[in-house]
């Protein structure tokens, strides 16, 4: 009898909801302009600014669906990166998504567990460049690294690094409601305005701030106060931009850089690394068209090429390794 009831229950639920792939599309922009690393933008004070790295955790992701039911995701973590738009929220038992909510940062429990509790490819496992800091044992809730012009010549010259640490920086991002998406594959598009995160911060004074300091509290507060995350149910600014390949080397570990890339293709790519003699040193097949590629190899000091290719594109990029 119990089995019977259970099966009926199961049938009913599958009748109402189907399994659907849910994607999160984070459209990074700078006051509406397409965002990429190494590109000059202007701060609200009129200073030239560029970014080396913008990464942040989202946690506690929850969907509202099918008549106001809430579905907290079983694996509710996303590591957002300035050069990556497409994230999977997994295959979920929903028909129509009506709302989305998440937090900026990592929840207290996971922040206390640390990186060694997660399987290798999980957002909370060890990353390069690193998304955790050892001595206080915790994740960077966000990393905003770059350079700002403090000499007035329009050239960003002074480095800044804001990396928020500590449970106190967790922010419930104002939830998104009133959605009505019942597509076969549901894509939730959220615009992320990086300019809003740095509003009211004198970047020239920041230096290297890896802590829960007032500066990083300000970044966290700006998330809602300046509405970094917005959702326009009708259109996304993404479609206004023509896509071109963007490749950028992050030299936080000069002896093992990470290549941030975002390619002008929507197919998967093969990645290969060559030394100057043309010898292939690393290779990885069938990778996403946007992401980060860690040069996880102890290479000699020198110049190298990374090549991204599929039938449609072939992009070459030179980077250096300094031991």
């Amino acid at each position: 009898m119990k089995v019977f009831l259970f099966s009926v229950g199961l049938l009913m639920s599958t009748a109402c909801f189907s399994q659907k792939d849910i994607n999160l599309n984070l459209v990074h922009n700078y006051n509406g302009a397409s965002f990429s690393y190494g590109t000059n933008y202007t701060t609200s004070d009129g200073d030239a600014v560029l970014f080396d790295r913008v990464q942040y955790y989202l946690s506690g992701i929850e969907l509202t669906h099918d008549g106001g039911q809430s579905l907290p995701l079983a694996d509710p973590y996303v590591l957002g990166s300035g050069n990556v738009s497409n994230y999977s929220l997994g295959n979920q038992m929903v028909s129509t998504v009506e709302g989305l909510s998440f937090d900026l940062g990592v929840d207290v429990t996971a922040n206390g567990q640390g990186l060694s509790s997660w399987p290798a490819n999980h957002p909370l496992a060890a990353q390069s460049p690193s998304m955790d800091w050892g001595w206080p044992a915790g994740y960077f809730f966000f990393v905003i690294d770059g350079m700002v012009d403090d000499s007035g010549d329009g050239v960003p010259n002074r480095p800044f690094s804001m990396r928020g640490l500590g449970d106190a920086l967790l922010r419930n991002v104002t939830p998104f409601t009133g959605l009505n998406n019942s597509d076969a594959t549901i894509t939730l598009t959220v615009d992320v305005n990086i300019a809003d995160w740095i509003l009211g911060i004198d970047l020239a004074q920041v230096g290297s701030d890896h802590s829960g300091s007032p500066i990083n509290v300000k970044v966290a507060d700006n998330t809602n106060d300046e509405t970094v995350f917005t959702m326009d149910p009708l259109a996304s600014i993404d479609e206004l931009w023509t896509k071109e390949s963007k490749i950028y080397a992050n030299y936080e570990l000069p002896y093992a850089p990470t290549i941030f890339y975002n390619l002008a293709t929507s197919d998967r790519v093969d990645i290969a690394v060559f030394d100057m003699t043309g010898k292939r040193i690393m290779e990885s097949k069938n990778e996403p068209f946007e992401g980060s590629y860690f040069i996880r190899e102890e290479l000699k000091t020198g110049s190298y090429f990374i090549v991204f290719s599929n039938g449609e594109i072939e992009e070459n990029f030179r980077f250096v390794v300094k031991q």
Partner: peptide, 30 residues
């Protein structure tokens, strides 16, 4: 752990010297 007690466990403390530029200056995956 640590002189100011900011690190909660021996397991977590093992990652500190790896990242510290003035200790191992390295990356856990390498």
């Amino acid at each position: 752990l640590l002189l100011d007690g900011v690190n909660p466990t021996l397991e977590k403390q093992t990652f500190v010297p790896i990242q510290e530029h003035k200790e191992f200056d390295f990356h856990i995956l390498l």
